[in-house]
Design a protein around this nucleic acid. Structure first.
Lengths: 131, 131
DNA sequence: ATTCATTGATTACATTTGTAGTCAATTATA
DNA sequence: TATAATTGACTACAAATGTAATCAATGAAT
């Protein structure tokens, strides 16, 4: 029921903008992206077209111009990307991956505390889980 | 000093095999990969060639055939992939990413405990860090 | 009203990637 | 040894991707 439309790296940047502030006119998308990337407006329009073809971006004629909005859910897509990454690089082994990310050492003390609390919570839930 | 050779997904699978058991003859690489993927031996040889062109795979004439070995370090490459992923999907924000991975709920109780211990350790180190 | 700029559709083109096939030399085998 | 299979170099080709340009229609600005 749910095809997996491959969103390329450049296309992903467009989706991020749209997810963040949809609905948006093409010109708005272009404005935001040209601040971060050296992309021609033409290029960005191409990316938009492709996202529409792929069925992940939608549009409606609002007023004189199109207004674009996401068709697919950001959380869902991110989850998919997480799973792809995990599978591709770690063969799906979550813990080793987490350990390495933790060892990359980019966490503040308060991040660490938050994560510990989250894990504590998880552990408790495990305890009360149904078999 | 260190160009970033883009290793594609299929190529990455070849590297994984080589990292795991180098040095290997092409036929060995092919044997291992055809067990997991429906790739023609020709395809795998193409991937090997491209990896050599990209400078991430090396070979030496051992006996009658080539023996292949990795030029780049697996840990380094994985770190690079982690960073790419983190940047691309989370704009570089490590904690949110970790939280989501944790919430995907694929950890056993003992995984969770290990991670907690690791975080505890990290927190201690933070305490004794030089400014 | 005329001209310029913008929008969206369509087309372009090089590079990368997936997925092989060809071919000459070499090796293994009948 | 004659023949078949394998190896490695080179070639092939379509789809995806990055990166635009062209073109017709529409809207904006003088």
């Amino acid at each position: 029921m749910n095809e997996a439309p491959r969103v390329s790296e450049a296309e992903w940047e467009v989706m991020k903008v749209v997810w963040a502030s949809a609905p948006l006119a093409a010109s708005d998308i272009i404005l935001k992206l040209t601040k971060t990337f050296s992309w021609s407006p033409k290029t960005i329009r191409t990316l938009i077209s492709r996202l529409i073809q792929k069925g992940v971006l939608g549009y409606s004629e609002k007023g004189k111009y199109y207004e674009y909005f996401p068709i697919v859910d950001e959380e869902e897509c991110m989850k998919q990307e997480r799973q792809n990454f995990l599978k591709r690089i770690y063969g799906g082994a979550l813990k080793p991956m987490l350990v390495q990310f933790l060892q990359d050492d980019n966490l503040t003390s308060s991040d660490i505390e938050d994560l510990r609390r989250l894990l504590e919570q998880k552990e408790k839930n495990k305890g009360t889980e149904e078999t």
